[in-house]
Design a protein around this nucleic acid. Structure first.
Ligand SMILES: Nc1ncnc2c1ncn2[C@H]1C[C@H](O)[C@@H](COP(=O)(O)OP(=O)(O)OP(=O)(O)O)O1
Ligand SMILES: [Mg+2]
Length: 334
DNA sequence: ACTCAGGCTAC
RNA sequence: GUUGUAGCCUGAGU
């Protein structure tokens, strides 16, 4: 164990794999304006200096670029887009930290994890429904990534990461600052950037405490990012759990429970990852199907300039993609 | 078997 | 204009 974790992160094998991932994402530039195409030449000329700065602990990440995108539920999502270089470095960190943290994560945690999926979460919930669970606490956090508390998160990370230079670097990524759309730079006061390759893992490291808390309470649940569903057999248990979990999240993890999206309901009234559970069967929600119909309508509307074949191709790939996700529905009757 | 495009969904 | 993680699907090439 003579090699430090930072050496492992910066090893050419790991960095090469990180770059391939960032490249294949094909994302647009961060605040420094550098594109993926320009990046290899830039790195060739500067990598020795950058690597030295990282190893000696004086590397300072660029601020993330603030971009606002609309959320499906209405409102706007505040993305924080790192520079290509910082995406590669964060990805390299994530590749080393993931195998370190993932094995100890809960079996009921499904979001952002390798070899785990929304389908897995939905199937687990359905298996509980089949064994007689009738009530749920459906819980969501408000602006989850944006409200992550740095101190609590870093404390969790330091439980497994001993390398001070890695901790320092992650801390600097959390406080990289934000370049606003008007060009001004604002400091980051809290949160992990929506758009940072490392952010999903960090969010799981933080909410792993919730998973362990729920496991300790011996309740059946599934979590996908900040979307948590807890199943009970009696309504009074659900009511009690909702209050207690809210206190836990807000007092111990300093997160904000989304009061409008969080509720106790009968299982067939709840929606989870686009699905609902009716008569012990998995079904898409009405709102998912409405989105589907709306987009179909848009795709079948005649538009000038593109050929019929092109539009039919687009339509087919959309339908195929949608069925591919919602096809696990055991649709029988509406 | 592997590489590379593109796409859908969840968050 | 739009970033990230993950699952899956289709296609092309060697
Ligand atoms: N398109 C995306 N790009 C990057 N990160 C995302 C994206 N969608 C979701 N996330 C991450 C960041 C979010 O904080 C987290 C939970 O998603 P979600 O609950 O939809 O939004 P939110 O928690 O930020 O706002 P809200 O208050 O509406 O719940 O998942
Ligand atoms: Mg949320």
């Amino acid at each position: 164990m003579n090699d430090s974790m930072m050496d492992l992160i910066l090893s050419s094998e790991n960095m090469h794999r990180a770059w391939k991932q960032v490249k294949s994402n094909g994302g647009s530039p961060g605040a420094d304006g550098m594109t993926i195409e320009e990046f290899p030449d830039f790195l060739k000329s500067r990598w020795n200096r950058i690597k030295r700065a990282l190893l000696l602990g004086y590397y300072v990440p660029s601020p993330v670029l603030r971009v606002e995108i609309p959320k499906k539920s209405g409102g706007k999502r505040l993305l924080g887009i790192p520079s290509i270089l910082d995406r590669v470095i964060q990805q390299a960190i994530a590749q080393v930290l993931n195998p370190l943290f993932d094995p100890d994560f809960s079996d009921s945690s499904f979001g952002f994890r390798p070899e785990r999926s929304a389908h897995g979460a939905v199937r687990q919930v359905n298996s509980y429904v089949k064994s007689g669970y009738k009530y749920v606490v459906d819980l969501d956090l408000e602006k989850f990534f944006d409200t992550v508390n740095h101190d609590i998160l870093m404390h969790r990370v330091s439980g497994k990461v001993r390398d001070k230079s890695v901790l320092k670097l992650i801390g600097r990524y959390l406080r990289a600052g934000i370049q606003l759309e008007n060009g001004e730079i604002a400091p980051t006061e809290m949160g992990t950037p929506q758009g940072g390759p490392l952010s999903p893992l960090l969010s799981n490291i933080l909410l792993d405490r919730l998973d362990k808390y729920l496991e300790g309470r011996n309740v059946q649940f599934a979590r996908y990012a900040d979307d948590v569903i807890i199943l009970t057999k009696r309504k009074c248990d659900a009511d009690k759990l909702m209050r207690e979990i809210t206190v836990f999240l807000e007092k111990r993890l300093k997160l904000v429970v989304n009061q409008t999206k969080t509720k106790v309901a009968k299982i067939m009234e709840c929606s989870f990852l686009g699905f609902t559970f009716k008569g012990k069967k998995i079904r898409w929600t009405d709102s998912s199907f409405e989105d589907f119909r709306y987009k179909l309508k848009h795709l079948t509307r005649r538009s000038w300039g593109v050929s019929m074949e092109y539009r039919i191709g687009k339509l087919n790939e959309y339908i195929r993609g949608w069925i591919n996700y919602y096809g696990i529905s055991q649709f029988y009757r509406p």
